[in-house]
Design a binder for these strands. Structure first.
Lengths: 344, 344
DNA sequence: CTGAAAGCGCTAACAT
DNA sequence: ATGTTAGCGCTTTCAG
């Protein structure tokens, strides 16, 4: 017990004593409240320095009911979170925004459905002031858990229900998909296939809808469902090629899947874009610029969307539960943009 | 104020009242202490369920001085964290282990040196019971900050100083590197180059040392420093090829760099492994199995190392500051293994 | 085995 | 402007 790490951290009380003021005044100085005369404040600050005082967060949280921490929950049973750069970028945006507002990011990974209970407990435990939830699949119970736990939430990607006080941030998946297909059409493609994402996610469905918008009444076999992995993209591509040897254009619902498709096309000896033009979605630079040929794609500003999620959540927390403020906050749908590289 | 989210969460007090017991007894049941008679315990449990009681963490932390939360600090100014699968795997391992012990993972990202102060404040704030620090570069102040904050720490990768109570987990970088080069030698390579990682990190230095062990007195121009990115690998490869057109073997200090090297080799028309044999390091499956040709590499069990870090830290926390337990805990160096695929 | 009571360190009314 | 005081919700001796 002689270990130095056992030296009790100084308390506000100690600081106050050393500065010769009351705990309240010390607290005021530490928290930057107005109305403390300069000399006193100075003394307190000195005491803080000398003692190396750091506020005890637990005590503070207990009374303020604020943790300055936000949970990021990834509803991805597969461990796509770590292999797909999409998440990385989004988390980066979130992290930046949170940091700028002195909030901590608490990452909650769910490896499987078993983990949901744990996450629920955590959210309910009052550890965090809010939650950012990603990558929802059909019937995901996470948002419900968060709501029951009374934790303000913002969702990444349009949820599959609509409800005025569910806030989300998404890009215009459908519009972007339309643009992708139109580009293919403009290039003169006659037989265009679609590699869709998992259709239990709205982003996939919306992109598929956009595809159909541009190609009404298309043969459903021209649509192959992937899983947002390179492998899945490859497989879907293979299927499409098998069914339609005359395929001359492909719109993949993600760059990652497009990269898989490109690979397969190469092994099959199809030239891109001469034989088959390919358009992706996301514009994940580390993927799109590195494929061979570089990928034409639909850009969404993923990092910025992350920031927006964080900002929206912080505002919602700020507003508290006060209903009056509710209408002022609304979900955000960002615009997409066609980025032409070499693949189409 | 009629917002349902304002409904005060039930307290232990409420549970106790409903179960007709004292707060103390309720607490015992909730925390699974022995010595509460079954019928009473049952009543408490029912009350918990009915009320949907969840302990307030702040209150608990205030008294127990435990947060059941561990910080993962990534000392990577560049945002390699998110682009390099290495980190992803390690974090996955950590996450699993932490979860298994009901600890939360708090991710602290540092985008630049400015963030260090914030991290220091956070660690000092008593938010977490311990810290896992990654990817240290020379003279990194993070470990010092953690120590000053009195936060038990385990480091990922051998630090550049040694000190009996600094705990770390690393693989046998030097031995692995030796194995890589020997494999190349066994294959008959006569002119072997090395693509090193940034030499301000011990893992890079250790691998370089291993390279030199197997090839004593080698021309220093056969060593090109990369930066653990594919691009860096490409550039280093180009340099090596320029200086040594007769190069017939390359050991890259990471799979990611090796993938860049492979790409460059292809654009230069060198066949792998016929003209130039390539060995990587890490065995990151998503990289090594997907390169063309698939990469021969040195495997380290990254996820397992993550688990080990977490386990070690948890034990250290468990032991408290008690010096008696110190000697029992020591750093871990894991073995590596050559995995032969097609590139060498 | 169970309950009463004393804080953990801090903030926020409320006094002064 | 500063100090006094009352808790925040929980765990944990200490009595009974």
């Amino acid at each position: 017990m002689s270990d130095p790490s056992f030296a009790p951290r100084p308390t506000l009380e100690a600081v106050a004593a050393r500065a010769g003021v009351s705990r309240a005044t010390a607290s005021r100085v530490v928290n930057g409240s107005e109305g403390v005369r300069a000399p006193l404040a100075e003394r307190v600050r000195r005491a803080v320095d000398e003692l190396g005082y750091v506020p005890n967060q637990a005590a503070r949280a207990l009374v303020t009911r604020r943790n300055d921490a936000i949970a990021v929950v990834v509803a991805e049973p597969e461990t796509r979170f770590f292999s797909d750069p999409f998440f990385a970028q989004q988390v980066r945006g979130i992290s930046k925004e949170l940091t700028a507002h002195d909030n901590q990011l608490v990452l909650l990974l769910t490896e499987g459905a078993d983990d949901y209970a744990r996450v629920g407990r955590y959210l309910g435990g009052g550890h965090v002031d809010g939650a950012l939830i990603f990558s929802l699949h059909d019937d995901d119970t996470l948002p419900t858990m968060a709501r029951r736990a009374g934790v303000p939430t913002v969702i990444g990607g349009r949820p599959d229900w609509s409800d005025s006080d569910t806030l989300y941030v998404d890009c215009d998946n459908r519009g972007g998909a339309r643009d992708a297909v139109r580009h293919l059409l403009d290039l003169g493609c006659r037989r265009i296939g679609h590699i869709a994402g998992p259709l239990d996610q709205t982003s996939s469905v919306d992109r598929l809808d956009g595809f159909r918008d541009a190609l009404p009444g298309i043969d459903p076999r021209l649509i192959a469902e992937g899983d947002f992995t390179p492998d899945g993209g490859s497989r879907a591509m293979a299927r499409l090629l098998a069914d339609f040897p005359d395929l001359d254009g492909v719109f993949a619902a993600s760059d990652v899947m497009a990269s898989g498709a490109l690979r397969l096309l190469r092994t099959r000896g199809r030239r891109v874009p001469e034989d088959v033009a390919v358009v992706g979605f996301d514009d994940i630079v580390s993927v799109a610029e590195w494929t061979d040929p570089p990928l034409t794609t639909i850009r969404q500003d993923i990092e910025e969307m992350g920031r927006m999620m964080a900002r929206l959540l912080l505002r919602r927390i700020e507003a508290g539960g006060a209903e009056a403020d509710r209408p002022a906050l609304s979900s955000i749908v960002t615009r997409t943009q066609l980025v032409v590289r070499a693949s189409a």
